[in-house]
Design a protein around this nucleic acid. Structure first.
Lengths: 332, 332
DNA sequence: CCTCCCCACTAGCACGTGCAAGCGGTCGTG
DNA sequence: CACGACCGCTTGCACGTGCTAGTGGGGAGG
């Protein structure tokens, strides 16, 4: 019934068309409690609203309500975003049921483009990674008080997202495959240094609790042939299994090993992290850690809702399960 | 000067604090033309606004203005999003200069999560991929009239984004390396079928205009060992160079070739598309097509602005340059 | 001295919504 | 018959902004 180029249909239009007051229409459409509206009127309003194609004006609602009902999720500029979309989808679904909307933004280095939290004034800002103090200050300067940062780097006890399981599984997987001396393949990418530290810390703890010798940590990028050097170092240290920070690191290690004439996993077993789709395409295919992004998304949404509404949600805790996906690079 | 938990600072606060009227404050802060404001007053207003940390309320502005000044970019659920962020960054930068903001949304299959265009009422919706008729109808039902869909699949003449250059470059690259009989590695992933068709069409045109025999098209996924079968078919057809739909397809082909005991590029040269970072990590490293995502982003922003404001922008046209990145898989 | 103009600023409306307070009518009760 | 209770609805305000119309006052010109 809408005419394409027509003006916006407001609640006043619906009211006028029925000979009612705008308030009545509002009460019906919002299901306001404590107001007595006859069934007949209610039906008439709903029918007319549908017929005219009424949609509440978001800006007006936000103005009146004083809050935008928006949650901004800041996603780091990781090259990991392939299955983050699952996480986002699940999170927005959960938020939607509570009347909130999720907007995502990939995080650019400060000073390039203006961050969305200045432009949308969201009620809550959630981050996959920690925010810098400057960023927190900027958000607070915009009046944003509900800020949920991502997990802090290394030895901070409470990981709100529970992503520390992955490295433990990596270590245990290599251990059950008979590897004792393990290496850790790190990246020098500054954008993820916090995450690298976090995963390395978790891997170290896991190795220690299994009684394994300390991890031999090497960067596999940055300098030319850093990976080749790392492989050499590991061989000299009798390392037979490598825990990689992520799948890219794992691929880099495997590439260097192959080019050095080594067999994978015969001479060096490697396991990645994140279960990036291309791990299955590699020769040899790369073992990795799969994360339950859907569960993580639900958890994130619950955290945001708790921050937004104040009252605790019924979310029991982190159910973001992680699992090993065993492939050729560790002998599957 | 802001107190953390204080109420929002409004223009009225600034006015009251100076003993001026709210209108004067508004004129100064908006730089309204056709209004005479003394230099002294102007300075006082600006200083006081800064001191109090005044930030205009976005919802109120949107309400008054009647438009949200938002541009929604719908990004398909491709596994390609690694460098799309460059594109987004550049686009939001350009839009920002015109007072608009860019919000991105990865596109979920219809019916899962509620699309953002219902929740933000953006002024323009831009898509990387075409929209389904249902989606267009849904947007129009929300009062969105400015819709810029992505390039249509195959033989549609005007590609608004100018992404058809890549396949041509792929074909020409293999041709200059001496390959005459070419194959095309397609994917069966339904999400990108339109894009596959688009790239295949462009590749076919390029091959035809070079006088090459028709491309031998094979899917490389879907069925088990589809890639192995494809490689066999190509060998029988004396194909020596394969144009892959994207880097994943290229990697799949290379994997199948290697596992079949063939040499790459000795027996089969392969070139991918998108220059996904992992192409450099493969053994052999994978030649690919790099897209100037920054330029694409600027172009997208210009398109959106033209749609939003009505008047044409000074954007000459698509300057989204594509380039071949030659690596080992084609003999570099 | 009166008039007119122009400067610098103010009063107030409109945007569309959510909701507190109020108001006329009817019904039940004493 | 009087009175209160209650139902069903309306009047009207507030949210914060952008901007049009208007207003007081001072200086210039006649």
């Amino acid at each position: 019934m809408r005419v394409g180029a027509g003006k916006r249909v407001t609640a006043a239009d619906v009211a006028r068309s029925l000979g009612l007051s705008r308030a009545t229409v509002g009460f019906v459409l919002n299901g306001t409690t404590g107001q007595r509206i006859s069934e007949a009127t209610r039906d008439r309003v709903l029918a007319e609203a549908a017929r005219l194609g009424y949609r509440p004006h978001k800006a007006a609602q936000a103005l009146r309500r004083g809050s935008s009902r928006l949650v901004l999720l800041v996603i780091p500029d990781w090259p990991v975003d392939f299955s983050v979309s699952k996480c986002v989808e699940e999170a927005s679904h959960t938020l939607e049921e509570a009347g909130y909307s999720l907007v995502t933004q990939t995080h650019h280095p400060v000073g390039t483009a203006r961050p969305l939290w200045e432009l949308l004034d969201p009620e809550v800002v959630v981050g996959f990674a920690p925010f810098t103090p400057e960023e927190v200050a900027a958000m607070q300067g915009c009046g944003i008080t509900k800020i949920i940062p991502g997990p802090e780097p290394s030895p901070s006890p409470p990981d709100p997202l529970g992503l520390d399981d992955g490295p433990r599984l990596q270590v245990e997987h290599l251990h059950t495959r008979g590897h004792q001396r393990l290496g850790f393949a790190a990246t020098t990418d500054a954008r993820v240094s916090g995450l690298v530290a976090s995963r390395l810390g978790a891997a170290r703890e896991a190795a220690a609790s299994l009684g394994l010798p300390p991890l031999v940590v090497r960067p596999v990028d940055g300098a030319p042939d850093a990976a080749g050097q790392a492989v050499q170092d590991w061989l000299h240290a009798n390392v037979t299994g490598v825990v990689a920070y992520n799948d890219d690191s794992a691929a880099t290690v495997i590439g260097a090993a192959l080019r050095g004439g080594l067999g994978v996993p015969a001479d060096l077993a490697v396991i990645g992290h994140d279960d990036n789709p291309y791990t299955a395409l590699f020769v040899p295919s790369i073992s990795s850690i799969r994360i339950d992004y859907a569960g993580l998304g639900r958890h994130l949404a619950a955290l945001a809702l708790r921050a937004a509404t104040g009252r605790p949600l019924l979310d029991g805790g982190v159910d973001a399960a992680t699992a090993v996906v065993a492939r050729e690079s560790t002998g599957a």
